[in-house]
């Protein structure tokens, strides 16, 4: 059993504070949704926020509790309506976003765009047939990936369902998709990525790199 690949504390904290690009955040959120260890780490980070709040410095308010209640008019939500479930295989955190349609971009590889208004990163789901060799590529920006199903393997290890692959500048890698299960993942990209080979040439215009 390989060690799991988790988002770093630094990445989780940036995510929790809303400091990361929304597209990158979405890939982190999918990882947190699927990975109990990172969900736990995120709860700890949130608890640090709570503790700092509890012991933090108080600055006097100009308005009072009565003002707040007056603005509210007393209304309360009595329960939550369960969020509509999306189709199987799509993380729940993608619910607020519009998804494109799957389309083939090459032999054994399909892509589905995730529209994230205002994000700098480009976000998409990628599905690759068992045994596919994804094109070798090099980054000037970041490429963050959460594996939704199946697995792939490259120079930095084997990445399976729920794992987070944080490839930052100057990584060069060459993923090999699991020969039995194939792989579906969600990817966010910033900066430039240069692919090599036939699939790269197919992918390049589609991900507008």
């Amino acid at each position: 059993m390989n060690a799991r690949h988790l988002a770093s504390d630094e990445t989780l904290a940036g995510f929790a504070a809303g400091r990361l690009d929304e597209g990158m955040s979405l890939v982190v959120a999918a990882h947190v949704e699927m990975n109990p260890a990172s969900a736990d780490a995120l709860r700890e980070i949130d608890a640090i926020g709570g503790a700092v709040l509890a012991r933090g410095e108080a600055v006097p308010m100009l308005s009072s509790a009565e003002d707040a209640l007056a603005r509210l008019g007393g209304g309360r939500e009595l329960g939550r309506s369960p969020a509509p479930r999306r189709e199987a295989g799509v993380p729940r955190v993608l619910q607020p976003y519009e998804l494109g349609r799957w389309h083939m971009i090459g032999r054994g590889v399909s892509l589905r765009r995730v529209h994230v208004p205002g994000a700098e990163a480009r976000v998409f789901m990628l599905r690759a047939a068992p045994g596919t060799r994804l094109p070798e590529h090099r980054h000037t920006g970041n490429e963050w990936t959460t594996i939704l199903a199946g697995a792939y393997e490259h120079e930095y290890g084997r990445f399976a369902r729920g794992d987070f692959d944080e490839a930052n500048e100057d990584h060069e890698h060459h993923p090999h998709v699991d020969p039995v299960e194939g792989c579906t993942c969600i990817v966010a990209l910033t900066g430039e990525v240069r692919f090599k080979g036939w699939l790269g040439r197919m992918l390049q215009p589609l991900v507008r790199l």
Binding site: E33, P36, R92, P96, G118
Partner: peptide, 25 residues
């Protein structure tokens, strides 16, 4: 507030993570 003009949905993402709860340990 900070992302209002960008039509950000990030706070909805946080709510989904909190509400439905990530897969529990």
């Amino acid at each position: 507030h900070a992302r209002r003009e960008k039509r950000s949905r990030l706070s909805q993402v946080f709510e989904i993570l909190e509400e439905e709860g990530p897969e529990q340990p």
